[in-house]
Amino acid sequence: MSGYEKPTPRINPDNARFWESAHEGVLRLPRCKACRAWHWPPGPVCPDCFSDRIGWEEASGHGTVSTWTVVHKDWFPAFKADIPYAVAQIELAEGVCVTANIVDCPADELRVGLPVEVVFDRVTDTLTLPRFRPRRG
């Protein structure tokens, strides 16, 4: 972790598979083995049918921006050099919303409904953050 000053996610038994998968370059999401619903955030039971049988399946990595913001204030010193940067909620093709940065996108192209795809950013030896960029073509 040396040199990485930004906050890192807390990894617990419910979400560990997500972060392990991301570090392997795969976007994997929890999906109920009983009712087949995808859900987010990860948890111990299916919020749709309350089953305990939660599996993890590879997601398409495609989605659209459901909302976004650009941060201009340096609340957190480690992000100061990145200002302004974009954070969005992405409605994935699987139907759940995840939060991540939008990268490789001029600020004036950010909009609700923008098609995006996942990219993987290995920030430390043990942590990879999924981010999203506009989907071209």
Binding site: K6, P7, T8, P9, R10, I11, N12, D14, N15, P41, P42, G43, T69, V71, F76, F79, D82, Y85, V87, Q89, T99, A100, N101, L129, R131
Partner: peptide, 14 residues
């Protein structure tokens, strides 16, 4: 772990 109380996501700068 399940998200910040106002949708904060510190690892992404929110």
């Amino acid at each position: 772990e399940t998200g910040g109380t106002h949708a904060e996501t510190p690892h992404y700068g929110l």
